[in-house]
């Protein structure tokens, strides 16, 4: 049986993209196969390991559980979008910098998803507590680090990079 393919438009890392795909194709596969953004990984295919985490409209999602049709019109950010200007001499994202120096990545396969979860966390909690870090990363399984260096990386990134916003003047 063969179904109708749809043209689906969305924005990935700031770039408008259109893909032609079966609507039930997973966003993960569209990113990896159609858009060749292979930074996003598959670890379990059931929303358990978080390796495929991306941000969609400002929320963290497991891209293996999103049928691409539901991404129509969405703003999507993948690991490739964290440091978009790297190739033209731009800097790493503060989280990437911190993971590099604090040992937050070992084998690297959970790293892209972990970075997206950490980015989401820091956006919601610019100065996260240990409990918030643990909760924010609990959906991203890492088998190498025992998580400790990852927690240290997030703390370092939050300490050095979080904007010190003053609350609105009253």
């Amino acid at each position: 049986m063969s179904t109708r393919w749809d043209s689906i438009r969305f924005t990935v890392n700031g770039q408008p993209r259109t893909v032609h795909a079966p609507p039930m194709k997973r966003l993960l596969d569209v990113l990896r196969e159609d858009l060749h953004l292979t930074g996003t990984k598959e670890g379990c295919g059931e929303g358990e390991c978080g390796s495929c985490s991306v941000r969609m409209n400002g929320e963290l999602v497991n891209s293996c559980l999103v049928p691409v049709l539901q991404a129509e019109g969405a703003q999507i950010q993948t690991v490739e979008g964290l440091a978009p200007d790297l190739d033209s001499g731009g800097a790493l994202h503060p989280l990437q910098e911190a993971f590099l120096h604090c040992g937050g990545a070992q084998c690297g396969i959970c790293t892209p998803g972990m970075l997206m979860a950490a980015a989401q966390l820091i956006e919601r909690h610019p100065h996260p507590s240990q409990a918030e870090i643990r909760e924010g990363l609990a959906g991203n399984l890492c088998r190498c680090t025992g998580f400790a260096r990852i927690f240290a990386s997030v703390v370092a990134a939050a300490t050095h990079a979080a904007p010190e916003q003053e609350p609105d003047a009253r």
């Binding site: 063969s2 179904t3 079966p22 609507p23 039930m24 194709k25 997973r26 596969d29 539901q70 129509e72």
Partner: peptide, 13 residues
């Protein structure tokens, strides 16, 4: 990925 995306129809009214 064992399932075949083309084996399923999905619409979003």
């Amino acid at each position: 990925m064992r399932g075949d995306p083309e084996a399923h129809e999905l619409i979003a009214p």
